[in-house]
Simulated assay, not measured.
Amino acid sequence: MDLPLQAFVFDFDGVIVDSEPAHYRAFQAVLEPLGQGYGWDEYLAHYIGFDDRDGFREAFRRGERELAEADLEGLIEAKSAAFDRELAAGLEPIPGAVECVRRLGELLPLAVCSGALRQEIEPTLAALGIAEEFRVVVSAEDVAHSKPDPASYRLAVERLGESLGKPLEPAACAAIEDTPTGAASARGAGLWVVGLDRGGDAGLEQAHRVVREPAEVDADLLAALGRGEQA
């Protein structure tokens, strides 16, 4: 089958693993003692897709409180420790995600592009038995600006090209994202975007194609994207 695409990039949280509830609980473990806590619905509406850095900045901005940059690293470290406790309990994969990674890995070079920390991503991929499927992992530490800024996807494409020993154009790559923030980042970097909308209300208008389950992302869909076909 003709497959004009040359690489595929996976988001991590909400696409490979169902980690958003764990991230929410870890944020609240840090914010609630400061009087800055918020509900799950507010997290979904305003915070999902941010990395830790911008998540704390947004919480303080919405709470109309000053956040000194000098204090930000301590908050991030505290949230990371809280999330490590969540990791120790284990994260469940999104149904069909592991199979999707392996299926696409037989077709194309793969990368992860995420606002999560590397120490969160790599052990989880290893626990799921899919770490070796990915040539590149771009995490929060690798860029100064998180999604929806396109910097992380630009870097993922650049590093994928380096791993292949040849320049790689963003338009020759596709990504899968489950949030408007992530879809905006990937599309802003020039990639084709598959939106994973498991609940049917994710607001993924910037995606070129929208699917309900990872099982729908197959060679036929990738070939259609590579030909420039949109839903």
Rank of each mutant, 00 (worst) to 15 (best):
E122H: 01
L107M: 13
R154K: 12
L87I: 09
V211E: 02
A68V: 08
F83K: 05
P109A: 05
E216G: 07
Q28I: 13
S114Y: 01
G195I: 09
G55A: 14
S80K: 11
A207M: 06
A202S: 15
D71H: 07
E69V: 09
E64T: 05
K166V: 13
K147M: 03
A45R: 10
D13C: 11
G39M: 13
L107D: 02
A81F: 07
G195N: 06
A70R: 12
R62P: 13
I76P: 00
D52N: 15
F56Q: 09
G39Q: 10
R227L: 13
L196H: 02
V9G: 01
G96V: 07
H23R: 09
P180D: 10
G200Y: 03
E132C: 02
H23C: 11
R187V: 03
L34M: 10
E162W: 08
S146P: 06
A231S: 13
R61A: 13
Y47L: 13
L91K: 03
A184E: 10
R25C: 04
A151E: 15
A81L: 14
G226T: 04
L204M: 07
H46M: 03
E141P: 04
A29G: 07
E132R: 10
A183Q: 04
V15N: 08
L160H: 07
A156I: 10
G228V: 06
A224V: 08
P4N: 06
L117H: 06
L204A: 10
L44N: 04
P33G: 04
A70W: 12
D11M: 09
R102T: 00
K79L: 08
A111W: 01
A29S: 03
L91F: 15
G203E: 05
Y24S: 06
L75S: 08
R85S: 12
E120C: 08
P93D: 01
A89K: 14
A97T: 11
A219Q: 08
G115S: 14
F60D: 15
S185K: 09
V143C: 07
P214K: 12
L104Q: 09
R65F: 05
D51G: 14
Q36S: 06
S139I: 01
K166T: 07
L204Y: 02
P123C: 02
V143S: 05
D84M: 11
R118K: 13
S139N: 01
F8H: 03
Q36W: 13
A186S: 07
Y38D: 02
P180W: 05
V136D: 00
G37S: 14
L222C: 06
G199V: 05
G96W: 06
R62S: 03
C113A: 15
R212K: 13
G35N: 14
L191H: 04
L204N: 07
A189Q: 04
E120P: 09
H23K: 05
V9M: 01
A223C: 08
P148K: 06
A174G: 10
L221I: 14
P170A: 08
L44E: 14
A215V: 13
E42P: 10
L108E: 01
A207D: 05
R187K: 12
Q119S: 10
D218N: 08
Y153M: 12
E177R: 11
A70V: 14
E120H: 15
L75Y: 06
